[in-house]
Amino acid sequence: MTSAVSNPQKPADWLGSLKLLAGVTLLVALSWEIIAGDHVHLSTTYLTIQFFVCVIFLYDFLLRLMQAEHRGRFFVRHLFYLLISIPYLTLISWTGIRMTHDWGILVGLIPMLRAFLAMFIIVGWMVRGNRLQWIFAAYLFTVVVFTYLSALVFYDYEVLVNPKLEGFGNALWWAWMNVTTVGAEIFPVTAVGKVVCVLLPSLGMMFFPIFTTYVLQEYAAKPSSDSATDSATATAADLTQSSGTKNS
């Protein structure tokens, strides 16, 4: 009976680890494509990696669909996961339509949403049981990943037209300065760069209350054990003195 109950969980755990590995692989491939690419054409290696990663995501969706008790309800509720798991770049390349590098990067970010959700497994492994710590860990994970992706997109769109952007290090510094709402001396000149420049500080301001709440909750002044002992001793002494006064 024990093996019959535990065996169905093993494929799910194995597939979750596979999705996590696929998400990290896709992030590394996208980083290499943008940082080391020519910013004009998408490499065959990147297109191949994205295709196989999307196949893993689609397999996960179909497997959970077949195991669902109400498949129609499951399909409707998880339709968004299906849509962001489709290898759009591969399908477009099969049709023979030529896509510019700029649009290719934007379309390639769609499976990154699915990879981002898969990488939330890391957050679940980091924090278990404590809801506030889980929210704070999810906050840090979201800010770090979104800021890094924003730096990649900003660098890819701005590097050929922005004279102040000298390398990816500058783009990463620009992204972190904007998510902290401090700002940087590098100003976007493309439409996509301007959109990212607005989204970053908005994300920072939206998540800052979570950081403040966590700090206040975890590091607020708490009575030490010595103080509690002294307080208990003083209370006992007061009670003894009061009792002695009544007896006299």
Score class of each variant (00 low, 15 high):
residue 204 G to Q: 00
residue 215 V to M: 07
residue 236 A to N: 06
residue 211 F to W: 12
residue 232 A to D: 09
residue 208 F to G: 05
residue 235 T to A: 10
residue 229 T to R: 15
residue 224 S to Q: 10
residue 193 G to K: 00
residue 199 L to E: 04
residue 224 S to E: 09
residue 238 D to A: 13
residue 233 T to N: 10
residue 239 L to D: 08
residue 228 A to W: 07
residue 201 P to M: 02
residue 211 F to S: 11
residue 211 F to P: 04
residue 192 V to S: 00
residue 235 T to P: 03
residue 202 S to C: 13
residue 196 V to H: 00
residue 216 L to H: 13
residue 203 L to V: 04
residue 230 D to W: 11
residue 212 T to G: 09
residue 220 A to E: 11
residue 225 S to F: 10
residue 238 D to C: 07
residue 217 Q to C: 10
residue 193 G to C: 04
residue 216 L to G: 09
residue 231 S to Q: 12
residue 190 T to M: 00
residue 215 V to Q: 05
residue 204 G to L: 00
residue 215 V to H: 07
residue 211 F to M: 14
residue 194 K to Q: 06
residue 215 V to R: 07
residue 233 T to C: 06
residue 202 S to T: 15
residue 195 V to K: 04
residue 215 V to L: 07
residue 240 T to M: 08
residue 228 A to D: 06
residue 201 P to S: 05
residue 229 T to N: 11
residue 230 D to A: 08
residue 204 G to K: 01
residue 190 T to I: 00
residue 203 L to M: 03
residue 190 T to S: 03
residue 220 A to M: 13
residue 228 A to K: 13
residue 215 V to C: 06
residue 222 K to L: 15
residue 217 Q to M: 11
residue 221 A to E: 15
residue 218 E to K: 06
residue 204 G to M: 05
residue 204 G to A: 05
residue 235 T to C: 01
residue 206 M to Y: 14
residue 218 E to V: 03
residue 207 F to M: 06
residue 230 D to P: 01
residue 212 T to E: 14
residue 201 P to F: 00
residue 190 T to N: 01
residue 222 K to Q: 15
residue 213 T to Y: 09
residue 209 P to S: 06
residue 227 S to Q: 15
residue 207 F to Y: 07
residue 213 T to P: 05
residue 238 D to L: 11
residue 223 P to I: 12
residue 214 Y to E: 07
residue 237 A to S: 03
residue 230 D to Y: 14
residue 224 S to H: 12
residue 230 D to Q: 13
residue 232 A to K: 07
residue 231 S to W: 07
residue 216 L to I: 09
residue 227 S to T: 12
residue 213 T to N: 11
residue 225 S to P: 07
residue 232 A to P: 01
residue 190 T to P: 00
residue 217 Q to Y: 13
residue 225 S to Q: 14
residue 207 F to E: 03
residue 234 A to P: 02
residue 195 V to M: 03
residue 235 T to H: 09
residue 194 K to T: 04
residue 200 L to A: 00
residue 223 P to Q: 12
residue 203 L to A: 04
residue 228 A to F: 06
residue 227 S to H: 13
residue 196 V to S: 03
residue 198 V to G: 05
residue 219 Y to G: 02
residue 231 S to D: 15
residue 239 L to M: 10
residue 193 G to H: 01
residue 224 S to C: 09
residue 225 S to G: 08
residue 222 K to V: 15
residue 236 A to Q: 08
residue 204 G to D: 03
residue 222 K to M: 15
residue 230 D to M: 11
residue 231 S to R: 15
residue 237 A to Q: 08
residue 191 A to V: 13
residue 208 F to Q: 10
residue 198 V to C: 03
residue 216 L to A: 10
residue 239 L to R: 08
residue 206 M to E: 11
residue 205 M to P: 06
residue 239 L to I: 10
residue 218 E to M: 07
residue 240 T to F: 05
residue 220 A to D: 11
residue 218 E to R: 06
residue 199 L to K: 01
residue 240 T to C: 02
residue 196 V to A: 03
residue 194 K to G: 01
residue 213 T to R: 13
residue 210 I to Q: 00
residue 202 S to G: 15
residue 190 T to Y: 00
residue 218 E to W: 03
residue 235 T to M: 08
residue 199 L to H: 01
residue 203 L to T: 02
